[in-house]
Design a protein around this nucleic acid. Structure first.
Length: 573
DNA sequence: GCCGTTTTCGGCCCGACTGTTTTCAGTCG
């Protein structure tokens, strides 16, 4: 079983216990443990099978260690099964409705015996819910709108899809004369792969004017709540946005507070307590005396830390590293010099080799690799050996036509379900750059997935593993991979690992990219562009790399072409 | 349920907003 699957069991357990009214700190323990499992690369299944002690892991004590062993050995957890029989799945789903929490969900379940979303809708429409103590007409309306929201969309959006809206709103508010500073905060500022809602922070002395401006913005569909300092709206895209307006001397404290993550902030505030300080969204203070708050740097300094980049604020060791003065100097978009994964009209791209080369050059890239699909990808008109060799001859021609950019003859070669490569070695040997990828059979058992990846890594002509897990965020889980084994082999054989920058892939994720860096494996960040506009995705790959704590020196295509060539396996390029 | 050189028991971050409450519980971030 994969770590994320086990983490989901703990999350479900926490949800069920929460509806039953369990101690909130017990719930937090389960959720912390789930986070802990998601942020480690070693497989829990492997650790259990090797008989290793699990209580060393953060957030895992004696009880949870035993539960993990049970899950690995039997594939299930008796406590969870029992809870599932007590609380129907439909009741847990009700938690996804904004405004409905565990207490009210439990009340709906116990007093009206509602066990499905359909029954909830019927009860709301029939007026039964508004008769419950603590419920009323507004709450009923909120439930109906929430059900609608769940029906039409998932609850999370790609960061990249939300970027234009956020930038537009920040720009509009920033243009108001009464606004001093304005910025996006929250998970958007931390550059998470997906965002559940958006946060914007502004400083002004005229709160009402700022809120009015947001309410009147063309992207805003509805104002959901409005108070003295906070306004919540829903955008036409369906996502909700929180606006906070604070005084200018609170800007840093508020930015720190609303950027999160929650887990990071809990530790920061605990550090404050230890120093006799308190931190809230307005300031750092001691006995009601203002200590800091104008800038984030001041807030961190007050708790004895340097500024921590938002991308790292997940309480995954960044606070300890900051304390030791070991924070990385994170990669910047401007560091990127090459792009090593892209398609042309030869397969499923929309631009020619020359158009891609010109577009890349116009963006300041110094080298690219043209990497169309291999034949297994019939849907994309994948290339067999003959067509590929002809394609490379075309690339040669473009090399002589376009100056100022190096163009590598590459291939995105499928690793077939039977653990062989889609093209023979003598063809791969002629390439400058070979990306090996899994496209099909992602649901195969772990042993077979490992065998396939090992085949590719041990092939002397493979340069890099592309989008290693094969996941599509929010739509398809990745293959079940023993990353510890794969990364070790990749290092031993000098094979690089890709962060695919496409907004729906971002694969490697930040946890495994960090693990690859720790092992000394060069990372490649590539756009997988299928058009000249596809190069715009590079920024999202860089965000992912920053969240992994990567520096320019960790990224092969953040080097000059000469430096990059030195990192290739001997005899290539 | 986890955690600990000040603690193995008693802590576990902090505040805004809404609705339905006659003073606050629930939810959210």
């Amino acid at each position: 079983m994969q770590n994320v699957e086990i983490a989901q069991l703990f999350e479900e357990l926490a949800d069920l216990l929460e509806i039953q009214g369990a101690n909130v700190f017990r719930l937090r323990a389960y959720r912390n443990a789930a986070r802990s499992l998601e942020s480690m690369t070693a497989s829990i299944t492997d650790l259990v099978e090797q008989g290793q002690s699990l209580t060393e892991l953060p957030g895992i004590g004696k009880d949870l260690a035993e539960k993990l062993v049970t899950i690995v050995q039997t594939g299930e957890l008796p406590q969870l099964n029992e809870l599932r029989s007590e609380v129907p799945a439909g009741v847990v789903q009700m938690l996804r409705i904004p405004g409905l929490g565990p207490k009210r969900v439990a009340q709906l379940f116990k007093e009206l015996n509602l066990t499905t979303l359909e029954a909830l809708k019927a009860a709301a429409e029939g007026g039964e819910i508004s008769k419950l103590k603590g419920f009323g007409a507004k709450t009923t309306q909120m439930i109906l709108e929430g059900l609608e929201l769940i029906a039409q969309a998932g609850n999370r959006y790609y960061l990249a899809d939300m970027q234009p809206s956020v930038e537009d709103i920040v720009k509009t508010l920033g243009a108001l004369p009464c606004v001093e500073q304005v910025s996006a905060a929250g998970s958007f500022r931390r550059r998470k792969e997906t965002v559940g809602d958006l946060d914007v922070l502004a400083t002004s002395t005229d709160h009402a004017a700022v809120m009015d401006a947001l309410a009147g913005h063309a992207l805003v569909e509805k104002v959901l709540a409005r108070g003295e300092t906070k306004q919540r709206v829903r955008l036409r895209s369906g996502i909700e946005l929180d606006l906070r307006v604070v005084p200018n001397e609170s800007y840093g404290a508020a930015m720190q507070y609303f950027t999160g993550s929650k887990e990071h902030n809990i530790v920061i505030r605990r550090r404050a307590q230890e120093r006799g300080l308190k931190v809230n969204e307005y300031r750092v203070f001691r006995d009601e005396q203002y200590v800091a708050g104008r800038t984030e740097e001041d807030v961190y300094a007050a708790v004895g830390l340097p500024f921590i980049p938002p991308e790292l604020r997940e309480n995954r060791g960044e606070i300890e590293r900051a304390e030791r003065g070991e924070l990385p100097k994170l990669l910047e978009l401007s560091d990127m010099q090459g792009d090593l994964h892209m398609h042309t009209t030869a397969t499923d791209g929309t631009a020619s080799i020359r158009e891609m080369a010109e577009a890349a050059k116009a963006r300041g890239l110094k080298y690219i690799a043209i990497t169309d699909h291999s034949k297994r990808v019939t849907m994309a008109n994948g290339l067999d050996a003959d067509r590929l060799r002809a394609h490379w001859r075309e690339i040669d021609k473009v090399r002589s036509q376009v100056s100022g950019i190096e163009i590598l003859c590459g291939i995105e070669c499928d690793i077939l379900e039977d653990a062989t490569m889609d093209l023979p070695d003598d063809v791969l040997a002629e390439a400058d750059w070979v990306i090996a990828v899994l496209h099909y059979g992602l649901k195969q058992p772990r042993e077979q997935i490992n065998k396939r990846l090992m085949t590719a890594i041990q092939n002397p002509y493979v340069s890099v593993i592309g989008h290693p897990s094969g996941r599509i965020i929010g739509k398809r889980p990745g293959a079940d991979i023993s990353f510890d084994d794969i990364l070790k082999a990749a290092f031993d054989h000098g094979v690089m690992m890709e962060i695919n920058a496409h907004r729906s892939r971002l694969d490697l994720d930040e946890v495994h990219a960090a693990a690859a860096k720790d092992r000394g494996i060069p990372i490649v960040i590539s756009t997988d562009a299928h058009s000249v506009h596809g190069f715009d995705e590079m920024q999202f790959g860089v965000f992912q790399a920053r969240r992994a704590g990567l520096e320019a020196q960790d990224v092969a295509n953040a080097q000059s072409f000469e430096q990059f060539k030195k990192r290739l396996r001997r005899g290539r390029a």
